[in-house]
Design a protein around this nucleic acid. Sequence first.
DNA 1: CGATTAATTGAACCTGGTCAATCGGAGTGG
DNA 2: CCACTCCGATTGACCAGGTTCAATTAATCG
Lengths: 216, 216
Amino acid sequence: MAEFKIGELSVEPDSVVLAEGDASPHLYTVLDGFGVRAVSLPDGRRQVTNFIFPGDFLGLQAAMLGELNHSVIATTPMLLCVFPRDKLWDLIRSSPARGYDIVWAAAGEERFLETALLSVGRRTALEAVALGLWTLFQRASDVGRVKKNAASAPWPQRDFADALGLSLVHTNKTLKKLREAGVATWSNGLLTAPNVDMLAELAHFDPSAPRRRPLL
Amino acid sequence: MAEFKIGELSVEPDSVVLAEGDASPHLYTVLDGFGVRAVSLPDGRRQVTNFIFPGDFLGLQAAMLGELNHSVIATTPMLLCVFPRDKLWDLIRSSPARGYDIVWAAAGEERFLETALLSVGRRTALEAVALGLWTLFQRASDVGRVKKNAASAPWPQRDFADALGLSLVHTNKTLKKLREAGVATWSNGLLTAPNVDMLAELAHFDPSAPRRRPLL
DNA sequence: CGATTAATTGAACCTGGTCAATCGGAGTGG
DNA sequence: CCACTCCGATTGACCAGGTTCAATTAATCG
């Protein structure tokens, strides 16, 4: 990949890395930092579609479809690796294995979005919050941001509520229930869960899906 | 593509083409017929994640990630073109252009799911129903299933409700409102909308997205 | 130590869900 | 041709999970 890299971009918290409707000439890989993808309505209603972790690939939609459907907003300082979008085609042609990896990432994103859709559409608030926390915990774990029982989760409750399709108030009250039940505590950007499995159980979620990249 | 085809599969309405959790050895292209993708909870709650039209590509998740996150259910008789999943890798390697097409399709699916998530999470029932109808209309139009103001839409209201995350009853009542307002009528598998744009407006949706599709 | 933003909590309210009938069209057997 | 059944569509009445409004508390920062 290194040969296609054209630079690095460093952004501040709360800045918009990519905006809905953009036809960005760049693709990014997240080297460090956290953020969200979100789509929104003209009146301000907002849906967070995924949380962004180090290692994530940004801008595929813009490269493939011409423009982006969602915005990407940094939650913490973020360091990005920049690629020119016109080179995506060269990349796939010159290295089918990389093309395969991109398809793999896209399929994973699709799976995540389907699961999120099930949560938002059919789970109760308690179930949805539990699964949301479980997912954050897993992803933090995948990038080595879990120590003991505590995972890095530097997002405000507002973002979490927008990801679940719930109001901020109700999300807060539901988090309180889980806290009082001793299932999970989230404060100061740190998510603590003594028993992570319990979160999946509460959400009726079967965590047995393979999540590691297959070897080629 | 023809060289990888190993046969055709014909299925009856209401049959399960692929099931959640399957590690199907096959990939499919829909030659004819309609269906849905859906994920569900152990207690039966169900979320339809997309409607399936002729031309759709099924089973990418199973091929890439090992197993499928959603089920695929036929709504009408369906005719499928079958490929062996192990050949996906050969396909991408031997023809990067096809690999590119697959990435294109995956990016489009991702966009659709994000839009659906916004509907389910943040739109009111009326807005969500309007956008749902608009989307069905567009997709039917893309595959040449619109005559005059009427689009083929052979799904029961149950499926539509499950796609919107609404109850069947409330979906029905909302459709009634649109019918009485003269915006759209859906009965007998035929969706009639004198003014399709009005559906997008009701949903606060900007329909100006590029949607060209490469041939697969 | 104010100022600002995020988290928390309580109370009133409403959108959409649940329950329970009824209607309507298609298929079946007599 | 009609009675009967089955299933999807439709409707009305009542209910509740979650939203909105409005404070209050906590944490951060110059």
